[in-house]
Amino acid sequence: MTELNVSNIQFFSTGDGPGIRSTIFLKGCNLRCPWCHNPETVSPYPQTLVYAGSGKTVSYGIRMKIDEIIEAVMQDADFYSSSGGGITISGGEPMLQAREVAELCKRLRELGIHTLIDTAGGVPWENFEEVLPYANCFFYDLKTPDERVCAETVGGDFHLIIGNLKRLVSSLADVHVRIPLIPGVNSDDDSLKKSEKLLASIGVKTVDLLPFHRMASSKYDAMESTYAFRDTEPLSEKRIEEIKSIFNENFSVTVER
């Protein structure tokens, strides 16, 4: 029986696609974004986070059979159908478990459940081919429009990521590009305009902007690791509006908070 390496399942997800959704966070990532707000999903191995202040203890990482996942998420089927929601598969990098994800999506599709894959795209194109017949929608992260930043800050293969995005768009998949707005990395005017140009040239239609937040700082503490963005202030509302206007011309833009 196929298993997935699951970090955790979040029910009543309201920021990860249309309607009420359950988000399956998979464990393991091939990028190392220093601002990451889900650092517990980076390592493929189980981890337990102990929050010093409140004493809360939360464990992440469990191998789940597809049947178990289906049973868990189908409890909320009524909510998906009443809201036009479904299942989001996120991470970590869900496309690292493409074969298993494809099987999960296939099963969910048979049950009439909308599936959405939230990926950063840095995997071989073959992985996308696995899931393409079954997934309804993709959220595709663009961390940076800059090859060097991609390699040095994020640890990703820029050409692979952009190449996959191009092929995904031309395969007529439903693709929403998501840009995390990270101060000092990609949210200055130059980077944003570069991103805008790049995405327009690829033929992307919708862009979601995700303003940086530092809610993850206590996760880093609980993992006893350092967090480079601990003291980074969130962008001002004014700045977010300015950024939105950069994309407004060529894209349908939403700011996801």
């Binding site: 920021g15 202040g53 979601d208 937040h213 700082s217 206590s218 609980a222």
Partner: peptide, 29 residues
């Protein structure tokens, strides 16, 4: 915090118990 142990803050791809957040982050919210 003891009175609000189940207060959840939800944003895209992320949710957290409010009481587990650092003070500066709580200020952000």
């Amino acid at each position: 915090p003891e009175k609000y142990s189940d207060l959840v803050v939800r944003v895209s791809g992320f949710s957290a118990y409010y009481v587990t957040l650092e003070r500066a982050v709580q200020e952000d919210i």
